[in-house]
């Protein structure tokens, strides 16, 4: 279900209606960015954001630090493959 794909906000086209242009691998499409806008992250600051695009809406911002943590963990696993003393699936309890 729910095809969602990372894209980057290229341009804010209508701040009032919270509309922007997103780029997905060289394909550009108008999207609604209401879901990624709040007091701490006003419309103007969305420019350059990496977001999850689903049916013409930016559903959430991608957290680059968390993405890096996941990738680091994958790197670690690849490195550990030979030894495998402790399969490193550290528990990551969902916050809250």
């Amino acid at each position: 279900m729910c095809l969602g794909i990372p894209g980057q906000i290229l341009e804010i086209t209508d701040g009032e209606q919270k509309l922007a242009i997103v780029d997905v691998g060289g394909v550009r499409r108008g999207v609604n960015i209401a879901c990624i806008v709040d007091e701490d992250h006003p419309v103007e600051s969305c420019l350059g954001d990496w977001v999850l695009v689903h049916v013409g809406f930016a559903l959430n911002r991608i957290d680059p630090e968390e993405a890096q943590i996941t990738l680091d963990m994958l790197e670690e696993m690849a490195a550990l493959q030979a030894t495998l003393a402790d399969p490193p699936f550290g528990p990551i309890p969902a916050q809250g």
Binding site: V24, G25, G26, V27, R29, V53
Partner: peptide
């Protein structure tokens, strides 16, 4: 861009 379109 073809890949992007296909993903989207």
């Amino acid at each position: 861009a073809v890949e992007g379109l296909c993903e989207l």
